[in-house]
Design a protein around this nucleic acid. Structure first.
Lengths: 196, 196
DNA sequence: CGATAATACGGAGAACCTCTCCGCTTGGCT
DNA sequence: AGCCAAGCGGAGAGGTTCTCCGTATTATCG
């Protein structure tokens, strides 16, 4: 635990005044609720209204929609990182399977928030991209070292595949199908590429 | 060739007046261009303007954005159906691979139009869903009968996987990665599920 | 070849959304 | 207490979706 969120430390660039910090938090709460209810295209006006602040305040804290989405996602995704740590206790192969299923469940549950962020280039500098990539890398490299995953697959590949499944089989679709598709993919990931 | 688009036949439900038909065609042309340039979220106003008609006319012909997208996609997708027919001359395994790669290229090229339609439930009644499913089924069942594809995979599964890859590795991303991911998936599709 | 009725057009306009700008308030510091 | 930078909020410009209804056009029939 390193207090990633930074509740105690004073990051540079973050608001210094108490009200600014409070508003930031309110906005995040409102955004989390609203995105959950109405999907990633929810009205930013509405979010500001729910948070009890003006639109200007929202845009000062989060200049773009994606910045807000990313911030909302950041702490949800932090749980996936923790899960990756926990799974280090199990066998590499099981850990890989379990974590990817957890990731899939997450990606499917948030109305495409994860997808709408990750479908665009996995640019560095975005908190949540970094977190996910780190977690995926952790689980994957362990599996690769144990020979439970082919070495020519990257963490990015895995993320893309899972996000793709989550996106194409949206939250309304059959959850069983999504899980089945992931299992199919996992089979390929386990297969050695040498066996042509 | 069965004149699927129905240029000659008079479908019920389609406009009877000459100007209506002409406007419908103009709208489709304008929509095709505009979606290609600006993606699936392009302004419908702009499309109407380009077509030289009022917004009301656009909405009468295509009540929703998706209806317009679906209509635009329909004839593009018809080419994929033709491709499936052509590939019937090659080996079942090759046909499967080649067609899925063609589908992937298509899905990646149209600025997410295919994705934005297919990511939502593959509801019947939508022209383009039907067409794609038919083409995929054609290629897949032949491969399955030849033992070149596991029997527990459905055409829907394949469509979802390809669309997912196209969505998560957007048109800006590395094309090589998308192809590689598809190859990975294809490996799993070829593998017999009995070999647990 | 008109006349008539059904059909389709078009654009004004209501409601909404994103995003900016700037006068005013408030919190932190001395 | 008093100053002043940091932060707030909401009016408003510009764009979008979608509707409604008076007007124009087309097919059809006498």
């Amino acid at each position: 635990m390193q207090t990633v969120g930074g509740r105690t430390s004073v990051e540079p660039g973050h608001p210094r005044r108490a009200d600014a910090l409070r508003n930031r938090e309110r906005l995040l709460v409102a955004a989390r609720e609203t995105f959950a209810e109405e999907g990633p295209d929810a009205s930013l006006n509405e979010i500001a209204r729910r948070a009890g602040v003006g639109p200007g305040t929202l845009y000062r804290h989060f200049p773009t929609r994606r910045a807000l989405q990313s911030a909302v996602l950041a702490d949800r995704i932090d749980r996936l990182r923790e899960r990756a740590d926990e799974l280090a206790a199990t066998s590499p192969a099981e850990a890989l399977t379990a974590w990817l299923h957890a990731f899939l469940a997450h990606a499917r549950s948030d109305h495409g928030l994860t997808g709408s962020l990750l479908s665009e280039p996995l640019e560095p500098g975005f908190d949540c991209h970094e977190i996910i990539r780190k977690a995926a890398t952790l689980v994957l490299t362990r599996a690769q070292q144990a020979g439970a995953a082919r070495p020519d697959v990257s963490a990015d590949d895995l993320i893309r595949l899972v996000v793709g499944i989550a996106l194409s089989a949206g939250p309304d679709a059959d959850p069983g199908q999504a899980a089945r598709l992931l299992d199919l993919v996992l089979e390929a990931v386990r297969t050695s590429p040498a066996l042509e």
